[in-house]
């Protein structure tokens, strides 16, 4: 080993020589430092600190074992938060995936106005979440909002969308769908470019309907993109925060309180760092397990065309 290193050092001009065994690691160091300091070290620190009771008023964290987790899982509000997050996940993912794939297929079959469709459907993606949230607070405004204005014009009486606990969460979900849809349309459009057009031609000759064509050809061949889109959406659904913070502050009556908002409340409002770290631990583990399960179950189905 040492001999080799010395040999290398002699052969070419040292550590930076082409064959140096250290060199690859040297290339990883800059990125690696940031990764360790701002991603992995914090996570493990959080795992460790989740075992302590700690808040702003305590002089020193106190070891309490799994007490923080016990508190959380006995907290009806935390259960509510998990429920909200699940509703959000189950409510948005199928809609986003179904709609964006459908729109992408439609756009892909058109040549006229194609650029217009792509550009306008993509536009909300560029709107900062904070701005989108503000925009939709205005749209949902019960008196002057455009939504109720249109409904009134149609003879339907509107409601106070984000101020009622029944409609608040679905209203936020609609905003997220509005904002994110275009991004996934473009991703699916890209995936569709890889499908050989002649497959559709022969299906057509064999009398396949539009639906059959896409169910038997498009869907299997687009699976790699589909897996990617599902994973991105799962992560997205656990990150939701901005919209809640601006539009509802978790209300009314915690109807829109979601995981990250709950972390924010516990940690940066009540300064309960022990619970904050326990919540971080739970979220990191949940994210990893969900994503690994999705990858496992879906990657088997990927077909390479």
């Amino acid at each position: 080993m040492l001999h080799n290193i010395i040999q290398n050092y002699k052969d070419e001009s040292g550590l930076l020589s082409y064959k140096s065994k250290f060199l690859p690691y040297l290339f990883l160091i800059p990125s690696g430092i940031f990764l360790v300091v701002f991603t992995y070290y914090p996570i493990f620190r959080s795992f460790y600190l989740s075992l302590f009771d700690n808040n702003l008023w305590m002089p020193e964290p106190q070891y309490v074992g799994l007490e923080n987790f016990r508190i959380l899982f006995n907290d009806p509000l935390f259960m509510r938060v998990i429920r909200n997050n699940l509703i959000y996940l189950i409510g948005t993912i199928p809609v986003i995936i179904g709609l964006s794939l459908f729109i992408a297929i439609l756009i892909n079959e058109k040549s006229k106005f194609r650029e217009f469709y792509e550009a306008s459907i993509f536009t909300p993606t560029l709107v900062p979440m904070a701005a989108a949230a503000m925009l939709w607070v205005f749209i949902y405004n019960p008196d002057i909002g455009i939504l109720n204005r249109i409904l009134r014009a149609l003879g339907i009486s509107g409601r106070a969308w984000i101020n009622s606990s029944r409609t608040a969460l679905p209203s936020l979900m609609i905003v997220m769908i509005w904002k994110n849809l275009g991004y996934f349309v473009i991703l699916f459009l890209a995936g569709l470019q890889n499908i050989n057009f002649s497959l559709y031609e022969s299906a057509k000759i064999n009398g396949a309907s539009w639906f059959q064509k896409h169910f038997y050809i498009t869907l299997p061949l687009i699976t790699p993109t589909l897996v990617f889109v599902i994973i991105v959406n799962i992560i997205e659904s656990f990150r939701v925060f901005d919209i809640v913070h601006i539009m509802t502050q978790g209300g009314p009556a915690n109807a829109t309180n979601v995981f990250v908002y709950y972390i924010y409340q516990q940690t940066f409002r009540y300064w309960d760092l022990g619970l904050g770290n326990a919540l971080t631990t739970i979220l990191v583990i949940v994210l990893f397990i969900t994503i690994i399960l999705v990858m496992r179950s879906l990657s088997k189905r990927i077909q390479y065309g």
Partner: peptide
């Protein structure tokens, strides 16, 4: 691991 998930320890860092 979005920053939202690990904000508590990162704030500490």
């Amino acid at each position: 691991l979005p920053l939202q998930a690990i904000v508590v320890p990162n704030y500490d860092v």
